[in-house]
Design a binder for these strands. Sequence first.
DNA 1: TGAAATTGGTATCAAATTGGTAAGCAATGA
DNA 2: TCATTGCTTACCAATTTGATACCAATTTCA
Lengths: 224, 224
Amino acid sequence: MLVLLVEDNRDLAASVLDFLELQGFDCDYAQRGDHALQLCQDNNYEAMILDIMMPGLDGLNLCRELRAQGKNAPIIFLTARDTLEDKLEGFDAGADDYLVKPFDLPELEARLKAISKRRTANSTSLKVADLEANLDNHEVFRNKQRIDLSPACWKLLIALMQASPRVLSRQELESVLWKDSPPDSEALKSHMYTLRKQVDKPFDKNLIHTLRGVGVALRDTSDA
Amino acid sequence: MLVLLVEDNRDLAASVLDFLELQGFDCDYAQRGDHALQLCQDNNYEAMILDIMMPGLDGLNLCRELRAQGKNAPIIFLTARDTLEDKLEGFDAGADDYLVKPFDLPELEARLKAISKRRTANSTSLKVADLEANLDNHEVFRNKQRIDLSPACWKLLIALMQASPRVLSRQELESVLWKDSPPDSEALKSHMYTLRKQVDKPFDKNLIHTLRGVGVALRDTSDA
DNA sequence: TGAAATTGGTATCAAATTGGTAAGCAATGA
DNA sequence: TCATTGCTTACCAATTTGATACCAATTTCA
């Protein structure tokens, strides 16, 4: 995971970098806000840790600029400014978290992970309600019970889980299986039928919901 | 946005609830961890604020249980326990943020929003009074209650919500359903009737208003 | 003022559409 | 060969749609 640290205090930066790299993060470092902005044009950081008071471009404006550019990687402010107003200004600038100095390195790590976990689409396991899919070993469990799926059903389920709770249209589902040249038959219905039979039928709560005229959604709706 | 607050101190809870509701959040409240767990089975919260020390089931285990159930709504711990170990345990249990008491209500709000923004950022939803439509999920709620609409009714409602509080003429409404070749019958009346029956009838306040000779408007008029 | 006309709400229904179910069959690979 | 998988088709149930008839309320106009 590639992280950018922007901090004008070299000593502090060094200890943070040491720690994060020890924990397995890939880190880039900038000492000035304007340099950081430059780095962001060329790299796709998965998270950023920003000081506020810095030469060149302060952290708040750096954050605002990045957000204005449509970059929405998680941002944590790391600063000595600890008043309520400071914090609100930070969140208002588009930050995801705000940590006041002095701080513990493990807390920074925990917050970094917490804030990044939502974006990690490359996570090896998907979970929706009691349904779990492990992308690495190609396994699906519901309620701790293994489910064997055919390749087609697997693809459909993964697509639905990744989209959850969004609805996928018939067309989107077809393109999952056949890219852009779907058979001119009702093959999709067939596969969906098989998928439901395995994923929903044996259990007392349906996760696969049909939205007539729209498509299919996989979600945990608390109602019937 | 539906939020669950779990906190055993009634006074603190009351002030948090007051504040959040003033800021436009819909809140549910539980005083015990086990009650909260129960509530989570029946409701789909968009975020949760948990105390740690509580009767019944402590916040950490509540959080772990929810995560194990595949519920991944953002969770913020709100607690007096302020050591590094406490915080790490909180994040480890699956929390997204950790706020130490005493705290400022605006900071809680800022953190709540920061943590929720990722899921709401890309989900386009329309809201008029207590009526809410999510375009991605293709879901409609009124007063937290799900409403099932036929494709035609959905299209009409979305058009009305997007136009709200503007009036849509009969012709505009027809072009929503049939582009430019409406049937020569009163089919529109039929669909509008069905729509009202589902959206307005079951509730004590009408949002769909007819302006005789003009058209139909969806709006929250404070009068009868 | 009041009768007629117009507009819009209510209700029911048949035809069309959509989607779930099930069975059959060919292709593939163990 | 046998089992699995993918595709095809047919059939059925449920929902949706557009149609129509009939009211109720409002407006028009004599």
